[in-house]
Simulated assay, not measured.
Amino acid sequence: MPDNRPDAATPDLTAFDRLWLCEAVRLTEAHGGLLDDAEANRRAIAAGGSLARRIEARALWLAAHPDRTGTHRAAVGGARQ
């Protein structure tokens, strides 16, 4: 059974990085339309927890998707410069 915890897919991220990725996903959807997130939603619901925890799980799964990882990691890296 896969580990659905948000921090399981991104163990190297700090709390700030996780929040930054959540915001990057939110802004992506706000400006470009909703993402195809059926799998992310399923995993977030399965992970359980508070609404904030499920939102984070969804965003982190979407950010970890191969098509999005570089973009969001670049956003985190750019914020640190």
Rank of each mutant, 00 (worst) to 15 (best):
M1P: 13
P2L: 09
P2R: 12
P2Y: 09
D3V: 03
N4H: 13
R5T: 05
P6S: 05
P6Q: 04
D7K: 07
D7Q: 13
D7W: 14
T10I: 13
T10K: 03
P11T: 02
T14M: 07
A15R: 11
A15P: 04
D17F: 03
D17S: 06
R18H: 03
W20R: 07
W20V: 07
L21D: 00
L21H: 02
R26M: 10
R26V: 08
L27W: 12
T28L: 10
T28S: 12
T28R: 14
E29V: 03
A30M: 13
A30E: 09
A30L: 10
A30P: 02
G32T: 06
L34Y: 06
L34D: 11
L35N: 02
D36P: 04
D37C: 05
A38V: 08
A38Q: 12
E39Q: 14
A40R: 00
N41I: 08
R43P: 01
A44P: 01
A44D: 01
A44N: 01
I45T: 14
A46Y: 12
A47H: 10
G48H: 04
G49P: 02
S50I: 09
S50R: 14
A52Y: 05
A52Q: 15
R53E: 15
R53N: 10
R53T: 09
E56C: 05
E56V: 02
E56S: 03
A57L: 02
R58G: 00
L60K: 00
L60S: 01
W61L: 12
L62M: 08
A63C: 09
A64R: 06
P66V: 13
D67N: 09
D67V: 10
D67M: 09
D67A: 14
R68P: 00
G70N: 06
A74I: 04
A75D: 07
V76L: 11
G77P: 02
Q81P: 14
Q81N: 12
Q81E: 14
